[in-house]
Write a protein that binds this DNA or RNA. Structure first.
Lengths: 222, 222
DNA sequence: TGCTGTCCGGCTGTCTGACAGGTTCACGCT
DNA sequence: AGCGTGAACCTGTCAGACAGCCGGACAGCA
């Protein structure tokens, strides 16, 4: 609590970046300035910027792609970083019971701001080709819906589940085949939430989770 | 993390360090080798080591002190779930969606040992008069059912929910009135799980949660 | 027009070498 | 014995360099 230790340049830059990301000033899906540019902006060397970015990546806020840049994939640190704690079977079994009612509540309680966030995430996903980045955005999409449910239990649990799933290699193996289909299903879910129909939102989410579950099954049993 | 994308040197070193720490090969409280030494060991430059260490620090595994070195402060990533942050409304809203299917699975998958545990807990509850102790036993009862579901997601979530509920004063206020009724409902749940009927188990759990929810409502609205 | 191959500028990944400042400890002086 | 001081080691930061990846511009070809 006491700021006895003056923070290093790398920590200071990390805090600044994290604040920008968590406040939404740098939206999910957007690209950060290049390391050289950031170094100039903050008046530090590129090493310091790289260490700060490495912290962001370790917390799951960003992903960095060689030759392209660093991209924001989450606006806040996930609750549960104990990856691989849950098996794929447990996850696919439990998800519908939590995400479907959460989608229904989201349709009834979502704010305009949350709808905007969902639209931005979907737009970013539509043009995303890198599997790992797409999975991270997908995770954010589901987490945002859970947040829109207005129920912190759902919000927290979905964040845990999606986080665990995102780090299972089966998920990445599945993405190439499912990406386009998922994008369409996501559109249906968003449309239902936009219209405020809880029943439609539940149905759309159920259809999506069912399709994803079947795709995962076929991979697990192959 | 993912075997698909070839990992950078910094990620590889980070994974190695994390594995060493989580496996306990490098005990908590110990000091890591200096950055220069690690660089030599792993055959990479000091920059790479620093980025890997920065990742460990971001996850809370290590702390680095200028002039002294880097020290291990945790053997696993902290599960920073903010318990007790859930409102009574959120909890009663979410519980049925999780505990009812968990009860159904428990009926299909429970072992004899788990049934014994449930019987013992119920016996203890029947003679327990102290409200706080009874709430703790009740919490264990529900957690045990979740564990019997064989699904670690349900097990984890129910543990969180019950933990949060147990710390709400409304729960204690309700117990005096509900204790006897709950004992009977618990008997129904246990009987259904013993018989192996998932349908009956879900119905019994639903009835129990509904009764508890109504009792909580009446207290919240008084 | 439409396709393709090449090249260039921008970006990340990594390395090297350097210097400032914090920490520890043993040596030597008082 | 007590104490100061400097050497040795450590982290924090910087500057510069180069390879490899990526996207787009552009010219050439069908």
């Amino acid at each position: 609590m006491v700021p006895l230790a003056r923070l290093s340049a790398a920590e200071a830059v990390f805090n600044a970046l994290r604040a920008d990301i968590e406040s939404g000033m740098v939206p999910v899906g957007s690209k950060l300035s290049s390391e050289a540019t950031l170094a100039q902006q903050y008046g530090v060397s590129r090493s310091v910027i790289r260490e700060a970015l490495r912290s962001c990546t370790a917390l799951g806020l960003t992903v960095t792609k060689t030759g392209k840049g660093t991209f924001v994939v989450a606006s806040k640190v996930a609750n549960d970083l104990t990856l691989g704690q849950y098996s794929a079977r447990d996850l696919t079994e439990a998800r519908p019971h939590i995400e479907i009612p959460a989608a229904g509540l989201a349709a009834e309680r979502r704010t305009e701001e949350e709808l905007d966030n969902l639209r931005h995430i979907m737009a970013a996903m539509a043009t995303e080709t890198d599997p790992e980045s797409w999975v991270a955005l997908d995770s954010t999409f589901h987490a945002t819906i859970a947040r829109a449910s207005g129920n912190k239990v759902f919000e927290s649990v979905v964040a845990d589940i999606r986080d665990a799933l995102a780090h299972q290699s089966e998920t990445l193996n599945m993405v190439a085949d499912r990406q386009h289909a998922s994008d369409i299903e996501h559109q249906d879910i968003l449309a239902a939430i936009e219209s405020g129909s809880a029943e439609n939102a539940r149905t759309a989410m159920a259809r999506h989770l069912d399709a994803v579950g079947q795709a995962l099954d076929s991979i697990l049993n192959s």
